[in-house]
Design a protein around this nucleic acid. Structure first.
Lengths: 201, 201
DNA sequence: AGCGTCATGTAAACTGTTACATGATTAG
DNA sequence: CTAATCATGTAACAGTTTACATGACGCT
């Protein structure tokens, strides 16, 4: 359960309300640990009940500003340095690759091309983010944000390169000529045809 | 819900029982889409009820061998080529990076070093897998498995390189001397200290 | 006065994990 | 005969998503 640690982490930078935290999730944490409003509010209630955070102040429309407690900070640090990182490696994208032999090579090629395009877009978006924050306040909080951003850039670049490489490999297959896509629909219900192996890179 | 598509994909290669599929999940699909026995059996029952798979034969100890139906194959192909890939990018590992400023630079450095070690191990393991399957039957099913393996190799390499780069950046910080780790425990309850930015790469 | 945003909460459905439970068959 | 493996299922719980519901405040 890392949602609680995400919340503790955000609150370690200063007090905030559920609404504030929700915005932060939508903007900066969306790509790392998405969370919904519903989930967020109930987790905050639980954290408060368990003493890891507390209500610092109450505002206008029932607004409750939470603050992290000493116990909460200790838990956050424990999670950071003690608990082994469990990368949940569930990948929709890669799962499909395993079964690409059930569709035509053209369709498989199309899938990989789309992955490459998507990776290029994401990479460009991250570059945009980097341009925006360049020259801004260079404090401790930014250093680690930069590391995360760099990871995003490297990951999307790797994904792009791999998808292009993989698409090219499929395009290099024999019997992969200029078949118009219209005629492929009727082959959909036929069993996947055997594919000759491509030469190693 | 991609578990059902994983099952359909495996069954597209030939009939199998829940037990067989479970083994396949543990061996070859564990790193892509982990699933538990419990989850698997109930999903098979559901797929059967919905007509996407059917019982082909019954074996010795209540064994039920499932076979994919035409409807199931259609659903698999639809998922592969029509539905946009939703990469669930929830990353425990990256989430921690954002909050690394709440612990000492030494501890942050240690975290990144451990990530690098882990990535190196995983990369080596995948290399081992590649050695094992080299020279084996080179059929259509293998081609796409190779693409997936290559992605694993590239991903773990990228993770290793990034973690090393990030660790080096933290090690290059000022005031980052040879502090014995024993003395760090008392700084755990103190507020995280401000960190000077490192020069760009 | 009314619209947009701020602000929080609950309920239901679904997905995933852990643990419990049971029994048949085969190999040694 | 007995231990390992084959083989399936259920129950309880934890985490996530979607939808519903409500109301206060601030600006024009």
């Amino acid at each position: 359960m890392s949602l609680r640690h995400a919340l503790l982490g955000l609150l370690s930078a200063g007090p905030a309300s559920g609404y504030d935290l929700l915005k932060t999730f939508e903007i900066s944490l969306a790509n790392v640990w998405p969370a919904t409003q519903s989930q967020l509010y109930s987790e905050l209630t639980r954290l408060d009940r368990e003493g890891l955070i507390e209500v610092a102040a109450e505002g206008p429309r029932g607004r409750k500003e939470y603050r992290i407690t000493g116990e909460g900070l200790a838990e956050l640090r424990h999670w950071l340095v003690e608990e082994p990182p469990t990368q949940s490696r569930r990948s929709d994208m890669l799962l499909r690759v395993f079964f690409l032999d059930t569709v035509t090579p053209d369709q498989a090629h199309g899938y990989l091309e789309r992955l490459a395009v998507q990776a290029r877009k994401e990479h460009a978006a991250l570059r945009g983010v980097r341009e925006q924050i360049i020259g801004q306040g260079e404090d401790a909080l930014r250093l680690y944000g930069d590391l995360a951003l760099e990871w995003g850039l490297r990951l999307t670049a790797a994904q792009r390169d791999w998808a292009e490489w993989a698409a090219a490999r499929i395009a290099a297959l024999p019997h992969q000529s200029t078949v118009p896509t219209e005629t492929l629909t009727e082959t959909l219900t036929a069993p996947a045809e055997a594919i000759e192996p491509a030469a190693a890179e």
